[in-house]
């Protein structure tokens, strides 16, 4: 027998994990996972992003992957799409950089300028 409180907890926890099947309005974090991306270390980046989502119960954040973006020399690449905002492209991302991106940009809305493609190209 579950109490009403327990039911609500199950509802919240499960929703976080399956919401991506319904809600397509939240933030999307997209990792380039083509051959060169994986070679450049995209997998640990993806894993650290997912860990962060899990740890912080970010129910409205969707983590996705994409194929070749056409900028192999900048891999691993992470793109952040926030509703109503321009896409931000981060390049040469590591697991540690991904942590900052998640905490500052995804959660607090502050773009991490120094990792963006604009900073890299200067």
């Amino acid at each position: 027998m579950k109490s009403l409180k327990e039911l609500e907890e199950i509802r919240k926890k499960t929703l976080e994990t399956i919401n991506i099947r319904k809600d397509r309005t939240g933030t999307r974090v997209v990792v380039g996972m083509a051959t060169c991306g994986i070679a450049a270390g995209a997998r640990p980046v993806l894993m650290s992003i997912m860990d962060e989502v899990k740890k912080n119960n970010l129910a409205d954040v969707v983590v996705a992957q994409t194929g070749c973006i056409g900028m192999c020399r900048f891999e691993p690449i992470v793109e952040v799409y926030k509703p109503g905002e321009e896409k931000v492209t981060y390049v040469k991302v590591t697991a540690a950089k991904a942590l900052r991106i998640m905490n500052e940009h995804v959660m607090q809305g502050k773009v991490v300028d120094e990792y963006t493609i604009g900073a890299e190209e200067k």
Binding site: L7, I10, R11, T14, L15, I18, N19, R21, K22
Partner: peptide, 18 residues
């Protein structure tokens, strides 16, 4: 097609038993 019908938690997640 959206939930796994053999898992009650998934039904509950989308406002089931509310």
């Amino acid at each position: 097609g959206v939930i796994n019908p053999e898992n009650i938690d998934e039904y509950i997640a989308f406002d089931g038993y509310k």
